[in-house]
Nucleic acid binder design. Structure first.
Lengths: 162, 162
DNA sequence: TCAAGTCAGTTGAAAGTTCAACAATGTAGG
DNA sequence: CCTACATTGTTGAACTTTCAACTGACTTGA
C-alpha cells in the first residue's frame, strides 16, 4: 500500500517493518489456525465452530441453560445471529428454548441430552486439534506471552470501542 | 492425535489452566479485534475486510494484476470464494478480469484506477485502527513475541495439514 | 395510570461463504 | 496422436451472517 496515499494533508502513520511483520503473522496465523479447526470440526463432528461454542457455553453453566442475551454475550455473537443459530440447533434437537419465568420477554436456551452427547463426541477431536496446532507449536514461555498479548488486545479494543 | 493415553484410557488430554488461559485469550482477542476492524472498514469505507485484502494484494504487485489462483493463495481464500468476490468487485468497477495470455484457462484480475482510489480512501482509516487496537496495545517486546508466535503457529498448521 | 423510551428476541431479505459439480484447458505417458 | 488425468476458474444451491425492521414486554416519570 505504500503508494496508494491520498494527497491529503494529514498523512497517516503507516506500519514500520516490525509492526508489519507482527500484524501479518498474527492475521495469517489466525486464518490458518481457525480454518484448520473449522475444517476438523466440520469433518469429524459435522458442526461449524459457532455451534460448538454455543454448546460449550451451555454445558459449562449450572442447569446447562442460559438466557439468549447472556449466551450472545458469551459467544460474542449478535442477537440475530444467535437467534438463527439456536433455531438450527433446535432443529437438530441439541437445544430447546423455554420461556424465562422472571421476564416474559426472555427466552432460555437449554442444552438437551442429545446436545450434550453431540458435544461429548466432538470435544476430544477438537481439543486434540487445538493442542496439536496451537499448544504444541509454542513453548510455555510463549504460551504465557500469548495470554498476556491476547488480554492486552482485548482490553485495548474494549477501551477504544467504549 | 495428541492423546496422552494411559495403558487403557481413551480419555483425551484436556487443556490445563495455563493452556486454557492462552487459548481463550487468543481466541477472544481475535474475535474482538477482527470484529472491530471489520466494523471500522464497513462503516468508513463501505467494504468488508475480504475486499480490502484483495485490493491490497493487487495494489502491491507489478501491474496491479494477478492470476485468480495466485490471488486466492495470497488472500487464503478458496477459489470459489474469490471468484464470487471478484465478481462483486467487478460490479463495483474496482477490478476487471482479463484473459491470461499464456494459459487459456486462466483469468487475470486487475485493479482499476477506481479500485485504486477506493483503496486509497480506505487505507488510512484501516491502518489507524490496526495501530490503535493492536500496535498500541503492545510494547515492542510483545510485538516481537507476537510475530514469533504467529510464525510458529503458521508453521505448525502447515506441517499438520501437509 | 399512562405515555415515552428501552430492552429481549425474532424475522426476512440481502450479502457473503461453502460445497459439489462442471466446462475448458493443460500435461504426461504409451 | 490419444487417452487419462490434473488444473483453472466458474456456477448454483445450500448455508451462515448481517442488517434493518418489528413485536411484545419492562421501566420510568409525571
Amino acid at each position: 500500500m505504500a503508494d496508494a496515499r491520498g494527497a491529503t494533508s494529514t498523512e497517516p502513520r503507516w506500519l514500520d517493518d516490525d509492526e508489519q511483520r507482527a500484524w501479518r503473522a498474527y492475521m495469517w496465523s489466525t486464518k490458518v489456525l481457525f480454518d484448520a479447526l473449522d475444517r476438523q470440526l466440520q469433518r469429524d463432528a459435522d458442526m461449524p465452530h459457532a455451534y460448538f461454542e454455543i454448546l460449550v457455553r451451555l454445558s459449562e453453566v449450572e442447569g446447562q441453560a442460559l438466557r439468549m442475551s447472556e449466551l450472545a454475550d458469551q459467544t460474542r455473537s449478535s442477537r440475530s445471529r444467535l437467534s438463527h443459530a439456536v433455531a438450527r440447533l433446535e432443529e437438530r434437537g441439541w437445544v430447546v428454548r423455554e420461556d424465562c419465568p422472571t421476564d416474559r420477554r426472555g427466552q432460555i436456551a437449554k442444552l438437551t441430552d442429545t446436545g450434550y452427547a453431540a458435544l461429548g463426541d466432538a470435544a476430544p477431536g477438537h481439543v486434540a486439534a487445538v493442542r496439536s496446532f496451537l499448544i504444541e507449536a509454542l513453548d510455555r514461555e510463549q504460551l504465557d506471552q500469548l495470554a498476556a498479548i491476547g488480554e492486552a488486545i482485548i482490553a485495548k479494543v474494549a477501551a477504544g470501542a467504549a
